[in-house]
Design a binder for these strands. Structure first.
Lengths: 254, 254
DNA sequence: GGCGGTTGGTCGGCATTGTCGACCCTCATC
DNA sequence: GATGAGGGTCGACAATGCCGACCAACCGCC
């Protein structure tokens, strides 16, 4: 792969830095964090600001991400075929199951949520579209890791952080989890990511039968589980939904 | 303003082009649209792809926006102070009014929706966070135009497109609308943007008493209006909400 | 109130870096 | 199998963006 454009790589690093460091950052912070000269950093920030990717607090001079990113992120969703096809099916899934439904795709070292249907009861819920979830502990992540070789590599290279006391952190144990996931065709997460929260997910395939994402639902363990783990009716609903979306994408019948 | 970084400007233009042209674009399309050499364009696209801002369909070679934009756009929301403060108040607004609540800020030549609370009845609704609305025909836009000089300039430079038969398109007429908005402290939109839809909005101020955004609600004209226009109780609810958010931002009492 | 130590921001010389356009390769189409 | 259109590569050239020294404003501290 021939050389990439240096200034673009640096600009992307700036954006990622601003996205990571929760609060606003000053010019010098950015420059030193990236090991760049102040003048260089300023040029990048100035251009990014002009384009709307970065905003500057007038009073303090600190920088933060800009509104244009939100607009472009939204445009990304508009074009996203998988999401478009899944809209109606995930809606049904949430309605019939009574839980929140999610659609996720592999992105970098995690699962990027591209669609989220609120749990039907109207409690206060925050939209998680655009958020990332870990590959190794969530149902969506396990499904992607089990069926998508790229995700498999990603999770193998990273470390299996213990998020709760039930998170699977051993490499061999995790391998068995993936085998189980592949064998039964769906993945689960029993309080392995958040205490008291369980999730189920199943893979979505495109017209070439390649895994392109996962749909699932997440809810309080008291509602989602019974004595044997995830309730069978929820597993069936999730798998039906995944099949429906896959068929919609042209994967044909199973 | 000293020179900006050329390659960054071009990359931003590429992203905007991909965001605008609904469907995926090929390398040659992008190059010719921007008047760049193919080699140059390819370098930009390659780098953007490497950074996750652009994805390439493996089969056709066409390019589209990438997932990283969604993630960064979400991070933008996390940092957004106005939105954070407004979360709880807009929630109350939607609950008490029974309509969908919106929070918008000025971005380029329009209103960028940074928060959206669904109408409490659980019909199928699409989230509009990240979407843009026109300045001259929506309640949010009119409020921004009336109270924010920058927005005022933006709308004066653009043209007042007729979106419905009731859209105000004359420059003088629109000036009167802004005067009215300023005089009564809130803005409205009676089927000027979408047929059958009305909206109300009021300005939000920061600690220096500068207008930084607008909150409002939108709904079917049959529910939102009575014989005299927007129902007084909804106007009051919106203005209360705007005041509450402003106070939360440190604007002090009115 | 002077004074170091911040901070964001600017400028000009240098060579690195990105640009250009010709060229290649693959895949449909005819 | 010729043809054309599309994505992708390459290498020479010079325009471009990079660096580091330099300002100007601000803050807190003697």
């Amino acid at each position: 792969m021939p050389g990439s454009i240096q200034s673009l790589e640096r600009a992307a690093a700036v954006l990622r830095l601003l996205a990571g460091g929760e609060r606003r950052l000053g010019l010098s912070d950015v420059a030193s964090s990236l090991g760049l000269a102040k003048g260089t950093t300023h040029g990048i920030l100035r251009t990014l600001q002009q384009e709307g990717f970065v905003e500057q607090e007038p009073v303090s001079g600190k920088y933060q991400l800009g509104a244009e990113l939100l607009r472009l992120g939204n445009s990304y969703l508009d074009v996203h075929e998988l999401r478009a096809r899944a809209l109606v099916w995930t809606d049904d899934l949430a309605r019939s199951s009574g839980e929140a439904a999610y659609l996720g795709v592999l992105h970098q070292h995690g699962v990027l949520i591209v669609h989220h249907v609120f749990r039907p009861d109207d409690g206060r819920q925050v939209l998680e579209v655009g958020a990332m979830q870990p590959l190794h502990s969530t149902a969506l992540g396990k499904v992607l890791s089990a069926f998508d070789p790229v995700a498999r590599n990603e999770v193998a290279e990273g470390e299996l952080a213990a998020l709760t006391s039930r998170t699977v952190t051993g490499a061999d144990d995790f391998e068995s989890v993936l085998d189980l996931t592949r064998a039964r065709g769906w993945g689960s997460d029993l309080e392995e990511t958040w205490d008291g929260v369980a999730s189920v997910a199943a893979p979505v395939y495109d017209r070439r039968r390649m895994p392109v994402g996962a749909v699932g639902l997440t809810g309080a363990v008291e509602r989602v589980c019974d004595a044997d783990g995830i309730q069978a009716r929820l597993v069936a609903a999730v798998r039906d939904c995944a099949r429906a979306v896959s068929r919609d994408l042209g994967a044909g019948r199973f």
